[in-house]
Amino acid sequence: MILYLHGFRSSPKSMKGRVISERMAELGLSDQLVCPQLPASPKLAMELALSLIEGVPAEELSIIGSSLGGYYATWLAERIGCRAVLLNPAIVPLQDLDKHVGVTTQFHSDEPFEFKREYIDELRALAVDPITRPARYFLIAATGDEVLDYRDMVKHYAGARQHVIDGSDHGISEFPEYVDAVLAFCGIEAGR
């Protein structure tokens, strides 16, 4: 089973969410992918994620997280002991998200999105430093990420499998080129 966690103000309709969903459908494995809309509250987002994977053995679970979803995926992987793929993950979102307190909209819809100041404390409670068992992680980081510094990612996931893209952007525009490698790390071979 794969749990995909989108980034801040994003949704399962993000490009990476759609690419993963479409590839899993092509492989006849749509039933093995869970891609929820996460609430703005980190605490509620993790409660939702835990409820969706309840009863799934760690060795049968992989989490793919993008940006803030990567921060969440790291906390979950440490808690559960499963594999995690991190796509330009947030490392210390507390410092970056303070400026986003307030009401705005989601990126892929006109749905309101409210980020409350207390959510920063909820994020603090999910911090993982350092990671344990780096072999269970696969980092894909872009040097051209305009939101987060890839060097922080590389340092935080030292010892993990890493692929650093020279250039690109925060959204990893060429993600379709990497989806099969991501799924392979999750135990799903594209040639099935």
Rank of each mutant, 00 (worst) to 15 (best):
D121W: 05
D121L: 08
D121E: 08
D121A: 09
D121V: 04
D121P: 00
E122C: 07
E122K: 13
E122V: 09
L123A: 04
L123Y: 00
R124L: 02
R124W: 15
R124F: 13
R124K: 06
R124E: 15
A125T: 01
A125K: 01
A125G: 01
L126G: 14
L126W: 03
L126H: 01
L126E: 05
L126V: 12
L126S: 14
L126N: 08
A127C: 12
A127Q: 12
A127M: 15
V128T: 08
V128H: 08
D129P: 03
D129C: 10
P130K: 07
P130V: 11
P130Q: 11
I131F: 11
T132Y: 02
T132I: 14
T132P: 05
T132A: 09
R133D: 13
R133T: 13
R133P: 06
R133L: 12
R133M: 13
P134N: 04
A135E: 13
A135G: 07
R136C: 12
R136Y: 01
R136E: 06
Y137A: 06
Y137L: 00
Y137V: 08
F138A: 03
F138Y: 08
F138E: 00
F138G: 07
L139N: 00
I140E: 14
I140H: 10
A141I: 09
A141K: 06
A141G: 06
A142W: 00
A142C: 10
A142S: 15
T143S: 12
T143Q: 04
T143N: 10
G144P: 00
D145F: 02
D145Y: 02
D145W: 13
E146Y: 08
E146A: 01
E146T: 11
E146R: 04
E146I: 12
E146W: 13
E146K: 01
E146L: 03
V147W: 11
V147D: 14
V147N: 08
V147C: 04
V147Q: 07
L148R: 06
L148F: 11
L148P: 05
L148A: 05
D149K: 05
D149P: 06
D149F: 09
D149R: 13
Y150P: 08
R151Q: 15
R151F: 10
R151Y: 03
R151C: 03
R151V: 10
D152V: 09
D152N: 09
D152I: 05
M153K: 02
M153E: 13
M153S: 15
V154P: 00
V154A: 05
V154C: 07
K155N: 05
K155W: 04
K155R: 15
K155T: 11
K155M: 14
K155P: 12
H156N: 07
H156S: 02
H156W: 13
Y157L: 02
Y157C: 03
Y157M: 14
Y157F: 15
A158T: 15
A158S: 14
A158Y: 09
A158C: 10
A158N: 09
A158D: 13
A160Y: 03
A160C: 07
A160R: 01
A160T: 01
A160M: 00
